[in-house]
Design a protein around this nucleic acid. Sequence first.
RNA 1: GGGGCUGUGGGGUAGCCUGGUAGCCUUUCAGGUUUGGGACCUGACGACCCCGGUUCAAAUCCGGGCAGCCCCA
Length: 487
Amino acid sequence: MNKKNQDKKEIFELKSNQLTASKKDLSEWYNQLMLLADIVDDRYAVKGMAVWKPYGYKIMQNIKRRWDELFQNAGIQEVYFPLIVPIEYCEQNPSWWQGFKSEGFKVIAGTDNKIQGIIRPTGEPAIYPMYSMWVRSKNDLPIRFYETVNSYRYETKSTRPLIRTREISVWHEIHTAHATREEAEEEFQLHIKLWDELWKDLALPSFKVVKPIWECFPGAIGAVEYYSTTPNGRVMENGSVNNLGQAYAKKFNIKFKDEKGKEQYAWQICTGNGARLLGGLILIHGDDKGLIIPPRIAPIKAVIVPILFKGKEKIVLEKAKELSKELKEFDVYLDERKEKTAGEKFYEWEIKGVPLRIEIGPKDIEKDSFVLVRRDTGKKEIISNKDAKKKIKETLEDIQDSLLKKATEMLNSQIKDAKTLEEVKSNVKSGKISRVFWCKEGECYDKISETAEGLEGFGSDLEKKEEGHCIICNKKTKTKLYLAKSY
RNA sequence: GGGGCUGUGGGGUAGCCUGGUAGCCUUUCAGGUUUGGGACCUGACGACCCCGGUUCAAAUCCGGGCAGCCCCA
């Protein structure tokens, strides 16, 4: 590189609309992309609350559209519960209220500034008192409802866009009530299946574990939690499916009379997740050039950049418009802006992670073709116009598949079995998630977690194939515990 | 919860130690030439986190507040 080019490069590096952080510097990379890629703008003057920008909101809405489809097809109906939760509803669950008393935003109104209630931090204190009114007989069951709302918690911890916010936005929560334990368990399994489907659309492997019982809601039967990982080997809770048993029904008095006239409490399942899904997928997909949005949820699946040479603008634009009409089903976007050069546009759409770019210029028109560029691999290919639809469809599917494949490979390479605490230690150092045999006792769990600072056991394997010995007490067991630092 | 760092136009920064003209890059806007990987020229808009103190004079020093970032529980 000669002196002149080097100077030029340094100037470019200062460009404010350029991504300067490498993905190795994950937090900085993530923060820069929130603004540069038009996801959210968290400069809004309330901590932990951000403005959704059009591009980011569209991605989020596409994810929501997908869960609407999945859950509604499974017969679960969308409802809406009010934002304000009266204190009397909160008090029906004293242990919950104890936890959220200080984290709840209070609503004050009227001349005497009376507290009217709190803004919902979670759905259940609003939802379950109503379930209690609706359930009279077993004929009123099951209730299978979900809502997509914002929830509010005054977290004192540090916040991070999409991942830890005080306004938990586009929050999808499902609450069901059933007459029997068996029916509830069936529902539980169904929800896992549905979430797995959704994770596939995000091109993410659904990494899920059984939550230790002492970390579940008091009185609950159990829970499965989803986790996403970061490239530096940390884990992030990303959705959960809870089998509440009758714990909440007893607190909120959700009961019915069975055939014998005997009162029975309902069995309940609840599950939820929201914008964290988007945060998680951004952390996993993407590179030093910017985001990579999986085609199935990408608002723009392909962008057409016309190469406008002087004197040929008209013919190039005409061709580009024709092509964009033909490819309408792929949510193509024709970038006609005259004030930006082609190169500038390339960088911009790469930051935003549009899966495909179509370049069309005078040279291509002569050959009745266009240039197709993949965001994930950067590979360029000349495509003849007559193959356009077929080729784009195939390539999009291939990108979706290879993103999932890559993410799955990353996850697999991050999980490392450990036979000794020394191995757990070295796993922590090299940014790996440890998997160890564990007897399911809390005491041993604590001892393993103490192996390294910040290390946490976060759940055990769903599959139980092999048998081994607990890493601490040496008892025979088929259960494996996962350990990592959390993001 | 503990520790560290930082607040200067929309974004990134210099200036602060040693008080005195707020400099640079970029964005945005207007006009023109351009366009196959961040083009160029001309012109314009735009900032010292807040409150108080010291001083003839504060972005700079002092006190307090607020906000943000990073690391660790």
